[in-house]
Design a protein around this nucleic acid. Structure first.
Lengths: 168, 168, 168, 168
DNA sequence: TTTT
DNA sequence: TTTT
């Protein structure tokens, strides 16, 4: 085998996460993260900016964490890999979508900001709230999928006190 | 503004580079680079592998270097950033293509391999050789595009001897 | 020549930045950034954590920005490269120090947090404020040092309004 | 907790790997990898180059692979994290050494080069050959160490044919 | 479409 | 100490 396929994104979510549950009961989270570049136009001497939107998908326990703690506006660090999926549109034509499969996720907002954002999200929207219908039993048919390497960053933390029970 | 948009790819070219020249005379190079993941299927205990193809574009001096030194099969390290372009297909429908804008490129083949590959390319194909033809249909005012930051890795080397005049 | 030497750090400053000025009048900033790993001890089933401190140095305009906007506790993204310096201790023995030369810096605190931190820093400490004093004992001919590639992220932004004149 | 501590190195080994076995029977490999930067001195207009040496350590199965397949001159991609160790020199003084703990390793030499290098190594040196004195029994006291995350890249491949039983 |  |  061979190769390195690595993406590092730091940016803000454009929307609340979209959480789904797979047939086997495992969670999937999709987030859309913006990064932007800015530069000075040499001709007009004007300042310009371009925003790039990244579609990122998380699976399983990470998807649950994403659904529970990230909201529109949250700042995140994501490390992952590129995957281009082929699909058919309504007219049967082949289409391709490139997304980032998230392997590592770090929230970059302060706890104060997280609390503020969660509060807001819990009151004014519920699309991002973690879907607790997730099957408590695991991994039946999923096994013939590539298994993303478990990462230390994603392991379950010890619970020291009630207020501290968040996984990052 | 803010954000990090970074991609690191190490893999092999599936084809010779495609070189074009923009209206303003600057070169553009497109390469297609494969990476692959492999894992053991937990159900069948069989070894499986999936290949991902990355479309990477280089501009200007780097595009020239790519056209001159890379060939089908070449192994490269690329550091760049993601860009999703919107375009219209023949039926006028919006389509999106995600590619990597290359900022840093490192050839990973030994000099022996490079020489061998170039020899073969020069004799049996010319699709990868740098095409000095001016593209009649290009991107108009290129100057109002973000100018990729010059990188030390891409600077012109001193010329010590005639045989050694390659830029990496 | 060849090779990739890249470091990516996301963490918090353990102290206000230390700012110096070189003989040629250019600024140098040193910061100390913490990252930590945590894991569960398999034997005792206890939660453990280890903190790693990274010494990072910035030059020129970036050093000025670091001195002006970062404070103890600030969260930053840094991209840079490793450099091990050799020096002699008081007994004349060779010693080595590895540090990260910062090429890209992104503040990760929200504007609110930055304002709060700056306010606090300006009132209760001045060790982090940019020191315009010229260092009497510096690095001589700086120009024969490798010039870190200019990065788009570090370029001067357009000024849209008075309140907005910060370089990130 | 939090933070990102990531290093990416692509370079060549300056020496054969040094392989040791820990008390618990697990392998440890140390390699020294060179990267270099080059630039043109603005004053003298001369070409200059500086080489940086990176000390990288691998554990367990990866250490075995390093010992078996890497040699002086081998080109590698390494992804890891920084760790600064404190130790006492002969005079009892505190000293610090920064090294990279390798998490991902990819050989970048072609199979032809690897075979050539191994051949040479097997005939003219044995310092780098994998030390088979490794304890066949595993992990007793090591468990209170941070467990580097298992990576897909390092998993055991299926064996398709006898000649092909190498783990990359 | 590459490589192993 | 490697590579180019």
């Amino acid at each position: 085998m061979a190769g390195v396929n690595k993406v590092i994104i730091v940016g803000n979510l454009g929307n609340d996460p979209e959480i789904r549950t797979m047939q086997n009961g495992e969670a999937v989270a999709n987030i859309s993260v913006a990064t932007s570049e800015s530069w000075t136009d040499k001709n007009t001497n004007e300042r310009r900016e371009i925003t790039e939107w990244h579609r990122i998908v998380f699976y399983r326990r990470q998807a649950e964490i994403v659904g529970e703690y990230l909201r529109k506006g949250s700042k995140v660090y994501v490390e992952g890999r590129l995957r281009t999926r082929k699909w058919q549109d309504q007219s049967g034509q082949d289409r391709y979508t490139t997304e980032i499969i998230g392997d590592v996720m770090q929230m970059l907002d302060s706890r104060a900001e997280r609390t503020a954002n969660n509060y807001q999200a819990n009151n004014y929207s519920n699309t991002g709230s973690y879907n607790t219908q997730v099957n408590p039993n695991p991994t039946p048919s999923y096994n013939n999928q590539p298994k993303p390497a478990p990462k230390m960053e994603q392991s379950e933390p010890a619970i020291f006190d009630v207020d501290d029970d968040i996984p990052f």
